[in-house]
Structure formats: structure tokens, C-alpha cells
Amino acid sequence: MLINQLSVFIENKKGHLSKITKVLKDAQVDIRAISVFDSAEFGILRIVVDKPEVGAEALKKAGHVVKQSYVLAIDPSDKVGSLHDVFALLSDNDVNIEYVYSFVMPNNQGAPLIILKADDQEKAIALLTASDFSLIPKEAVYNVQNG
């Protein structure tokens, strides 16, 4: 259920993001989801790619600081308030959401999907599964054709 996400340190300066995307492109690694969390001076780029190990290795080799961590990919389904239901469910059960960002998949017809990092991932999975929210398997995220 857990998706391997890459976090990369970024300096807030011109051309820095493209340096990172170039490394991935050259390694033939495809980006599935991307988000930047930053302050005025620096930030963290969070990406989900089709080949996390290859991507992490290539970035490290190019001199970037990379951390691999696990996140959840959720399809909140396309109905009003469903995102709120996800957050409320976790919050009511004392699971903290560290961050969240959205992404789409080409074959996905409905609302944007979300990437979510909770402080207690196992508990989040159990809660979401029990409440019939659909967690997207990692294979589906990494490999679009099978999604």
C-alpha cells in the first residue's frame, strides 16, 4: 500500500528544479506526482516516480540530498466532501497528517488523487481501508498502464 516517495533538498534559486528534473529524465525516470514545500531560502521537493530506486540513486550520484520515505496514495472518489471525510477520519482517530498533495493519473477519470503522509501510516491504512476509501497500490502509481 505504501508508495516510495523521494524528498530532495532544493535551494530556492533559478534553475535548481530543472537540474533535478534533468537528472531524472537522463535516468529515464518518470515523475508521477510532484510538490514543493518551501520557505524563502530553501525547500523540499517531494516526488513520486515510476522507478524510485533508480531515481534516488541517480539524484544522489548527481550530488543531491535525497531521502526515501513512504506515503499513501488515496482516491477520495469524486463526491462532495469526500476529502474532508478522509481528513476527519484520521483526525478523529488521532492520526496526524504531516503533509498532503494532489496528483492525477492519465487514466483517472474523477477528482485528483492525493498523496498523504501521516505520522502513523499503519493506523492510517487500517482506518482508511475499514472505511472503504480506496488506497491506490504502488504498482498502479509507478506503472500507469496497469493503473
Binding site: V8, F9, S39, V65, K67, E98
Partner: peptide, 9 residues
């Protein structure tokens, strides 16, 4: 240098 700093901004 420490990748563990990338947990949060």
C-alpha cells in the same frame, strides 16, 4: 548533508 532533515521544512 543529512537526508533526515528532509522530513519537513
Amino acid at each position: 548533508v543529512n537526508q533526515d532533515l528532509l522530513v519537513s521544512v
